[in-house]
Design a protein around this nucleic acid. Structure first.
Lengths: 110, 110
DNA sequence: ATGATTCGTAAGACAGCACTAACGGTTAGC
DNA sequence: GCTAACCGTTAGTGCTGTCTTACGAATCAT
């Protein structure tokens, strides 16, 4: 699996995105994260596993607590991918025009 | 639903991402898209519906054919979101340091 | 050493999503 | 007007992912 795929799929889930937003603003423990979302603590732990596999977060053991903090390693490929899409789509869009529903002249071009 | 959420969720699916890649490279009809993926034509039509609701593609009726082309409207919010994540994560990462497994000094800070 | 706290993991139930098959609508061509 | 081609939609099915409960491991405090 390409690197930006896992990041894309990880951030697609709303709960997981909320957790990542919390970790992004400030490093937090699992219990602190679970207190700020509607799901249980094991669910948060599973989401953190997905985020960590996607290289979006890392964790550091602080005694019995696992403190999670963001990691740019997984976000960088996603950022590059979106940027490449952005450039190509702008070019393709400018070449095609911006009208959509109108079916004025029907020329066959294939 | 915020705009970048739908784009994120739409691009998370591999088949949908393949379809979007094809549309990005060149405007294509539904049958042409279906010929380049492993799923059936109705499945492609459904995926195009999701992509269109996310403002990632548009379509133009060319006789009986529906030609789909990319749309920057849905991609722009996603790009801005990823960029904002990138900036904040870089800052947070620099402030936290880059070590992970090491549990050297355990101070209680809460 | 013992008890308490924090966390990860396994197992099972449940919901959501993607897919196929069948149908109906619209347009081009004869 | 009639046939064929292209497409969207709906109903039904299978599967992947998420959630909760229960359990075990690791660490700090007493």
């Amino acid at each position: 699996m390409l690197s930006y795929e896992s990041s894309l799929q990880a951030l697609a889930d709303p709960t997981r995105r909320t957790i990542f937003e919390l970790v992004r603003s400030r490093p937090r423990s699992v219990a602190e994260l679970a207190a700020n979302v509607t799901v249980s603590r094991p669910a948060v732990s599973q989401h953190l596993g997905v985020l960590e596999r996607a290289r979006l977060v890392r964790h550091r053991k602080r005694g019995t607590r696992h403190v999670y903090h963001p990691d740019p390693a997984g976000l960088a490929p996603l950022r590059e991918y979106v940027e490449s899409l952005w450039d190509d789509v702008l070019t393709a869009f400018a070449a095609a025009g911006d009208e959509d529903g109108g079916n004025g002249d029907a020329r066959d071009e294939e």
